[in-house]
Simulated assay, not measured.
Amino acid sequence: MNKYVRPVLRANYRKTVEVILFLIEEAERKGVYVTTYDILKTIFVADVSHINNYGRPVSFDNYYAMKDGPVPSAAYELLGDERPEKYGHVHGEWPLWQKEASPSDGNGVVKFVRPKRSANTRLLSETDISALREAMSLIKAQSFTETRDMTHEYPAYIEAWQEKGDKKSYLMDFSLLVEEKDDDFVSDVVHASHYS
């Protein structure tokens, strides 16, 4: 009996850094801030929207089902304090943004502020930028619980979380985020992720 193997994308770390910088700048431009949760859920919503409207995600990140919803693994890694080895071509100071405690959002919550450089928007298409802006507006307009509940409704999240055992995260099947697809579409997106 053949066991189904979830398709895995090759995350574009370089582009994801620019996405994070863009979201921090966009939040500051709007007079708000973004937390880790805001950034991760914004990228998720933007990726789902973009793949369904344009045939590819913004970040090509792989998502894991966790207790509070889907988490893009490369973005999560990049938001940490250590520069990921997969993003080793960056020279100079890391991280490229400041973090501050945000106790009004909960214990241990941090917000991302004052990027150390502007996002290189040449790596982001107009549709990427539009999807990110729309997704961030949605996430910032909702409460933590509303966002959590919304992201728990995606079939890819439900399917992955049903595997719940002793782990804290489960790889989501990105193909379940696509509304209209076939096997060729899925393999094309996987292939494109190696060249994004």
Rank of each mutant, 00 (worst) to 15 (best):
R114M: 10
W161C: 09
T121I: 13
F144Y: 15
L124K: 14
E100Q: 14
M136H: 05
L124D: 12
K140M: 05
V109H: 01
S104Y: 03
A131C: 15
E100F: 06
E153S: 15
T147D: 02
T147L: 00
D149V: 09
S102H: 05
F112Y: 13
Q142M: 11
R133I: 12
Q98M: 08
S137D: 13
K116N: 11
W161I: 15
A135G: 14
G106N: 00
Y157L: 09
V109K: 02
A160F: 02
K164S: 10
F144G: 04
V113F: 01
A101E: 10
T121Q: 15
T145M: 10
T127I: 08
K111C: 14
S143M: 01
S118I: 01
T147Q: 03
M150A: 10
F112P: 09
S102K: 05
T127R: 11
P155S: 07
M136F: 09
D149Q: 07
E146I: 11
F112S: 06
T151L: 15
E134Q: 13
A131T: 12
S118H: 13
N120G: 05
G106P: 01
K116F: 02
G108E: 02
S125M: 05
Y157A: 08
I139N: 07
S104F: 02
F112H: 13
R114W: 02
W161F: 14
V113D: 03
L96I: 15
S130D: 13
E163R: 11
R122P: 05
G108N: 08
S130C: 05
H152F: 13
R148P: 02
D105K: 03
S130F: 10
W161A: 13
L132I: 07
R114G: 13
E126F: 13
R122V: 14
S104E: 11
N107P: 06
K140C: 03
M136E: 03
S143V: 00
F112M: 12
I158Y: 02
H152Y: 14
L138K: 12
G106C: 01
G108R: 04
S118D: 12
V113Y: 01
L96P: 12
I129M: 13
T151W: 09
T121N: 13
V110R: 04
Y154V: 08
Q98K: 13
L138R: 11
N107C: 00
W161V: 12
K116L: 10
S104V: 01
K111A: 10
W161L: 07
Q142T: 10
A160W: 03
P115H: 08
W161R: 14
L138Y: 14
R122Y: 09
I139W: 08
